[in-house]
Write a protein that binds this DNA or RNA. Structure first.
Lengths: 218, 218
DNA sequence: ATTCTTTTGTACCATTTTGAACAAAAATCC
DNA sequence: GGATTTTTGTTCAAAATGGTACAAAAGAAT
């Protein structure tokens, strides 16, 4: 039931960010606990993940879970936020840099496949897509996050295509919005197929085919 | 708790398919009950739909539900089968006829949007996509159905594009498999977005953009 | 050493959920 | 009419679930 046995880490000299909490020290690290919770939610979804499961996986007992993250719904939302932060961190650099279009897209899809296919208990897919499919969409706050996630991806892809068009990598007649939606569609389709255990090779072939259509064959 | 009050329908003269069942007659029609169950599962997914919900919606009490469809998992599977049969029935004609490519695809997407956006309690999305996202994929039988649904759609689209190519509606260099995957991707993306309550107009715009890329602008 | 603060861990509660048992009901067959 | 068959409707039981109360524990502040 204990997350780690290490004694409280000797505070680094001159680390002002840790002003010595007052009461009994936590037996868990909130970040790793949230990661475990995210793992569970990604595997089974909201309803099928019980607080007992979460308690076991995080090494925190129920009251601690409440104290740290609130009730199940709040924990789900925080897990989702964590997922999106991670995804943003992984893709952000590629979306910000200015490499040739095809190269950037290839990198994005490679990262996406890593995210969707990782996990010991089978591929985990995309949390945004899973949440959209779950009962959680009936919750307005959660639905807003899903919508936000979808449009954020659309916009990031649209930027890629616009830049490529400016640079002459794409025909002047290209519809960058439509292409961006196709790029997102491809993300969505591989997320779904990954969940159904389609092997990586096939997913990569689907991505390659989509890239050939969107960017012209290499 | 009763599905309908109508007395047992007077058997049509010369209808040999109804050999008069022996015991107490059913108070429900299996087909409409299964339809109600499907509605519930589509709204909330497997785990979040309880047998009580199903019992209330179908007008059957629990033991009858068991007798008719087996346990919850079996009922889910039968609902899924029903969903797929319905979808096949709705799209089959379009996939079988030989109208011009763009027209056929437009019809398919219109039907898909009808399916995904229908429902009083918010849009219901695509059951295949929802199931893929749910905990149900960890069940091998269900996962197999999902995979089957995905590849069936791929193949139907691939046939459309192959035929179009033979007819010269498409460039000889067109990669029909890649185009089919893009067509499926577009189905998947609108299913997901529908679930997130993106309005029909926007979904139609996404479809139009995808069609322009796949078939060439109209 | 004592007090105060925060977290932990156990125990508990109310509700929901799945599933099964079983007698009553409603029809057909003889 | 009586036996048989099938479904219904009530009821129960066992387990799981989300959430909370509360005393013990572990550290800092005084």
């Amino acid at each position: 039931m204990v997350q780690k046995n290490k004694p409280p880490p000797a505070a680094k000299i001159g680390a002002p960010a840790v002003p010595k909490r007052r009461g009994r020290p936590r037996a868990y690290e909130p970040d790793v606990a949230l990661g475990k919770a995210l793992d569970l939610f990604r595997r089974a979804g909201f309803a099928a993940t019980s607080l007992d499961d979460l308690s076991a996986a995080t090494g925190m007992n129920r009251p601690s879970l409440y104290g740290a993250f609130g009730d199940k719904r709040e924990l789900y939302i925080k897990s989702y936020r964590r997922y999106r932060d991670d995804a943003r961190a992984a893709m952000g650099a590629v979306f910000r840099d200015e490499a040739p279009l095809r190269q950037r897209l290839e990198r994005i899809y490679a990262i996406a496949l890593d995210i969707y296919l990782s996990g010991e208990a089978g591929p985990r897919g995309c949390f945004t897509v899973m949440t959209a499919g779950s009962e959680a969409v009936s919750d307005p706050a959660i639905r807003a996050m899903v919508l936000e996630g979808l449009t954020e991806l659309d916009k990031a892809f649209a930027n890629c295509f616009r830049l490529a068009k400016e640079r002459g990598e794409l025909a002047g007649s290209a519809d960058t919005t439509a292409l961006a939606h196709l790029a997102s569609s491809t993300i969505h389709t591989i997320a779904i197929r990954a969940r159904a255990c389609v092997p990586r090779k096939e997913l990569e072939a689907i991505v390659k085919g989509a890239l050939d259509v969107m960017c012209g064959p290499k």
